[in-house]
């Protein structure tokens, strides 16, 4: 179906010439390749969903491919009845919210300052940020720092060390620079302070970019696991990504063994893991169609400058 769609449309529009036989053949091959890309990308998702809905025996015997075998929802019930799973999910929401707020405030203020071309010392302020893109302290000094600041086991260990992404900063700076200067000058004439101009004139004009930034940061904090893995010692503080990590690494799989007594412990893992993967992927998949284009436009904006 997809292939036909590519063929039916006349191809002469853009380069204004009737397609040659060779080019038509190319279009067919191209459509096949792109269909292949789509299939390869989606296949793992469909497979994991199928596994999550199958029974243990079918998985172990390697029968589950794209369609579930021995359809049942018991594994979903098991995972969803684990209070720790929900607790860690709540943690993810909380960490994402706090970290995104902090990141947004710091990124917006700094980007606004950097967008002021007349500001003395601006080049230096930009360099302070950009240099960190190419050289950073590395894992060990960061670990030592966060530990000695006493941030372990708190949301700040996740929020503070990653509060400004320089890429996002440059995207926002590029946007602020594109705003018409006259509006801000009018604000200044009307007696607004710099803070007032930022809050009452610039930000209301920048809703699109602020939304993009919220998405950039929220998705990255939602998906992050390493900071929590490094700095959180207690299971009830883990975000759901660390919950999943411990499950696939096998360190918490054991507690499900009692739940399904008749099957052996190694077997329990297979569906439980698939179910947890599906349940952690679901929120992203649900919002994905709506947020995708903001990401693309944000990346473009960054590319102009960055």
């Amino acid at each position: 179906m997809v292939t036909l769609g590519a063929l039916k449309r006349p191809t002469r529009r853009k380069r204004g010439i009737r397609p040659t036989r060779g080019y038509r053949a190319f279009q067919v091959v191209n459509a096949i390749i792109l269909t292949g890309v789509v299939v390869v990308t989606l296949y793992p998702f469909l497979n994991i969903v199928a596994r999550s809905l199958s029974d243990q025996a079918s998985i172990i015997s390697g029968e589950v491919n794209l369609l579930p075998k021995g359809f049942n929802l018991t594994s979903y019930e098991h995972v969803m009845s684990d209070p720790m799973f929900w607790r860690n999910y709540r943690n993810t929401v909380y960490y994402t919210f706090v970290a995104t707020c902090v990141a947004l405030i710091l990124t917006t203020t700094y980007a606004y300052v950097l967008s002021k071309k007349h500001l003395k010392g601006r080049t230096f302020l930009v360099a302070v940020a950009v240099f960190t893109m190419f050289f950073n302290g590395g894992l060990i000094p960061n670990y030592v720092l966060v530990t000695s600041l006493g941030l372990k086991n708190s949301v700040w260990a996740i929020a503070l060390p990653n509060a400004i992404s320089v890429f996002n900063l440059l995207v926002m700076k590029a946007f602020f620079e594109s705003l018409p200067v006259e509006l801000e000058e009018a604000g200044a004439v009307d007696g607004l302070s710099t803070y007032g101009i930022l809050l009452r004139i610039v930000l209301p004009l920048s809703k699109a970019i602020v939304a993009t930034m919220v998405l950039f940061y929220a998705v990255s904090f939602w998906n992050s696991w390493f900071a929590a893995f490094l700095y959180m010692d207690k299971q009830e503080l883990f975000p759901v990504t660390v919950y999943l990590r411990n499950l696939i690494a096998g360190s918490t799989g054991a507690e499900f063994a009692g739940a399904i007594a008749e099957t052996d412990e190694a077997q329990v893992g297979a569906t439980i893991k698939a179910v947890t993967i599906v349940l952690t992927t679901l929120p992203i998949l649900t919002v994905y169609p709506f947020i995708q284009r903001y990401f693309v436009s944000g990346i473009m904006l960054g590319a102009v400058k960055g």
Partner: peptide, 20 residues
């Protein structure tokens, strides 16, 4: 307005560099 972000860069980016 640049003070807080600069503090972030100094503490969480440049201090670890020195921490090396």
């Amino acid at each position: 307005l640049a003070i807080l972000p600069l503090l972030f860069f100094v503490i969480f980016r440049y201090l670890p560099m020195l921490g090396n």
